[in-house]
Structure formats: C-alpha cells, structure tokens
Write a protein that binds this DNA or RNA. Structure first.
Ligand code: MN
Ligand code: MN
Ligand code: ZN
Ligand code: ZN
Lengths: 137, 137
DNA sequence: ACCCTACATTGGACAGGATCTAAGGCAAGG
DNA sequence: CCTTGCCTTAGATCCTGTCCAATGTAGGGT
C-alpha cells in the first residue's frame, strides 16, 4: 500500500499520519469495511484520529479511483481497496459478509440497446446473494 | 391492486384507510418511489396519514414479498410494486431515476462453482448505471 | 534548520433517512 | 354494539454522512 501513498504524494497529496493509517487499515484482500470500522481500526494505531478525517480520506481515495465504494443494502457503505481488478460481490443475506467474485462474461453485453431508454450506460454491477458457510451451519 | 389487499386481508391483515391508500399509490408499472414520495402522494388522498404508518406499511409489504426494496447509492430506498416479474434496474448516476430492464441471459449461470466460497447462492441482482436522457441534456 | 502558508485535522453542529415509543384510535369477530 | 388486540400517530431517537470554524502541520522556499 506504500505504492499507493507514494503515487498520491507525487500528485500533491500531503502525507499525514492519519492518511497513512487509513491506507494501512485498507490494505489486503476481501477488505470491505464501513467508514466506522475503518475509523475504529485506525484509532487503534492513532487514537486521536477523527471520524471526519476518515470520511474525508475515504471520499478522496474513492474520487481518485484508489478505493471502491460498495453500497450493499441501505446500510453503511463499504470501502474496497481492490479497485484495480474489476470484480463483483457475493453477499451473505444473513450476516452481511462479503466476498469478491469474478463471474464470466460481461453483464453490459446482456443489456439490449432497446432496453437502454436513452441512457448512456456506463457500468453494470452484479450482486450475488446467498448464505455463507458459517451461517448455514 | 385490490387483489393484493384482499389476499393480505385473508392472511389477517387489517384493512385500514391508510394501508389502502399506500397500496393505491404503489399501483402501476415503473413505479419506484421513495418512502417520502409515497407519503406525499398518499397524503393527497388522506391528509392525516403519518410518515410512520407509511414506513410500517412499506416494511410489511416488503416482508410479505409484495413490494421490492431497491437500495440505490446512499440515497433513500425506493419501493417497487413489480415484485412478481423478476427484473433488474438501470439507474441514473446523477438524478437517481430508475427504469426496469430485462437483460438477456442468467447472471447466476455466470458464477463458476469455484467462485462460490461455500455459499448457497440464491439470487443475482444486476444494477446498470448511466446517465439518463434528461440529465445528459 | 527555520518560516510560511496553503492545506489537513478536529469536535461538534447539522441533515436526511429510517426506526422506535407510548398514548390513543379503530377493524372486525363475537 | 362491545371488546380487544392490532393500528396509527407525533415526536423522540438513532444512524450515516456532511459541514463548519478554529487549530495544527507538511513540505517547499530561504
Ligand atoms: Mn470487493
Ligand atoms: Mn423495478
Ligand atoms: Zn453469513
Ligand atoms: Zn438523470
């Protein structure tokens, strides 16, 4: 994740302790934390970090395309550092856990032009729902 | 929509003026109203209806499978009476308007078993995003 | 090494969406 | 008609996320 920070610094991003910690928390695979979860984990390393800064930082990382915002249900949005390999999500309907999945085919190709209603269609997002192994037991 | 009310009454649902009005507001195709929009339209016919009752009624209709809840991105959820014909949605990223779409193919078939992570996969929901004709102008 | 200053951080106020509560209202079976 | 258990209501409360004015600081310039 230090690649990320270096990249952003070169684009004029000030490297602060808070931003570094948020980036560290978001490092890894299958990470889909809510803003408050990011704040809680960041606060373990940097107790005085504020919620506002976490929200600011996440908003900018999303805006710069380094982090994806995933709105699952009507609940809190989740933040996904796996922004460079396009993928979709498999959700547990019971506990809300999320896994990255890579389905075959392009869902955009499945939308006939006659179904576009004059929209400029930009992306297709697939959400699979089911019951995870833990919840099935 | 009176079919719906009759069905529910037989299952022990009390038929009140408020519930009748909410059901009437939700009648039709391509209806994807927010709870507040439902409340506003219901209040035209029944001025004293409260927001709480609209929320209560919508929650129950969703729970009984008569209405779909569509969570758009961070905005208010939308309520969709078209619950009996499976379909997907095309969403304007700018103004939040929604259209029903019927893509070809079955997205469930595009998820390889190796990608299931032990989940029992139940459904796949596709959200197309773009810019609607009004917002493009 | 030290200054500057433009940019970042902070706590708390604020806002929209949705749920909860306790008190009073009413559908519908008897 | 009564009765009773479910419904409705206004308002409080919760949750997520944004905004603000005051304070702090990264990092380029000297
Ligand atoms: Mn992901
Ligand atoms: Mn629909
Ligand atoms: Zn689960
Ligand atoms: Zn639009």
């Amino acid at each position: 994740m230090s690649d990320l920070l270096e990249r952003l610094r070169e684009r004029g991003w000030r490297l602060t302790a808070q931003r570094r910690v948020v980036a560290e928390v978001l490092d890894g695979d299958h990470v889909h934390l809510t803003a408050d979860e990011v704040h809680a984990r960041a606060a373990e390393r940097l107790p005085e970090i504020s919620r506002a800064t976490v929200y600011n930082t996440l908003r900018e990382l999303v805006h710069r395309g380094e982090v994806l915002e995933v709105s699952t249900d009507g609940r809190a949005k989740r933040y996904d550092p796996n922004a460079h390999r396009p993928h979709h999500h498999l959700l547990c309907a019971r506990c809300g856990s999320i896994r990255d999945v890579h389905p075959t085919g392009d869902p955009l190709a499945n939308l006939p032009a006659a179904q576009s209603f004059g929209f400029t269609v930009l992306e297709a997002e697939v959400t699979y729902r089911g019951i995870c192994p833990d919840c099935a037991a």
